[in-house]
């Protein structure tokens, strides 16, 4: 497996890299500092050719073995270099309340990815600018994919609001009462 991306990060932005490791399939992973991720993303996209944004998500590590629980959240980034045929696998580890710097300005595709992570894990992204819930509705309380959110957690129905104007679609859409 090629480790070009991580080698270059280590070489050009050594202060950004917290840790790198190879999993048992031989794939390389890099852990990046939360405030450095936009710089790393910019390096990868503009200088190293990782132009295809693949995906973003997060993991709540609350129920993992104790040595892996701290910090609680792991935000995942997958970026691909089509020409080199290489996938960069990056992680950012943060605790609740910490902010990850947004890479929306670098990759437009991260817009929805960051909204998704905020919606389901409650990790905030500094500099995103439009951090709304992605799939759940505005009135939803909590973050559904956290391990401490109950599987059968039910929330009350949202009271129906009077139809005011065309801006209001079904459900709530952020138009102030």
């Amino acid at each position: 497996m090629s480790t070009f991306a991580l080698d270059q990060i280590q070489h050009q932005l050594p202060e950004a890299l917290v840790e790198r490791y190879v999993d048992r399939h031989g794939d390389a992973w890099g852990v990046i500092k939360p405030e450095q991720i936009p710089h790393v993303a910019r390096l990868l996209k503009e200088r190293l050719g990782f132009r295809l944004f693949i995906s973003m998500d997060a993991v709540d590590r609350l129920h993992l073995p104790p040595e892996e629980q701290e910090p609680r959240f792991e935000v995942l980034y997958f970026l691909r270099n089509v020409e080199r045929n290489e996938l960069a696998r990056l992680k950012v580890r943060v605790n609740e309340g910490d902010e990850v710097h947004s890479i929306r300005a670098v990759y437009q595709g991260a817009n929805w990815g960051e909204r998704f992570v905020w919606d389901f894990y409650g990790v905030t992204f500094k500099g995103h600018g439009d951090l709304r819930r992605m799939l759940m509705y505005e009135a939803f309380k909590g973050h559904a994919l956290r391990k401490d959110y109950p599987l059968r957690g039910r929330q009350g129905l949202i009271p129906e609001r009077p139809l005011k104007d065309i801006f209001r679609g079904p459900g709530t859409n952020g138009v102030a009462d």
Binding site: L52, F53, I54, S55, Y107, Q108, G109
Partner: peptide
């Protein structure tokens, strides 16, 4: 093409 890559089109 740039935007397509940027948004993660596949």
């Amino acid at each position: 093409t740039d935007d397509a890559l940027d948004f993660g089109f596949t």
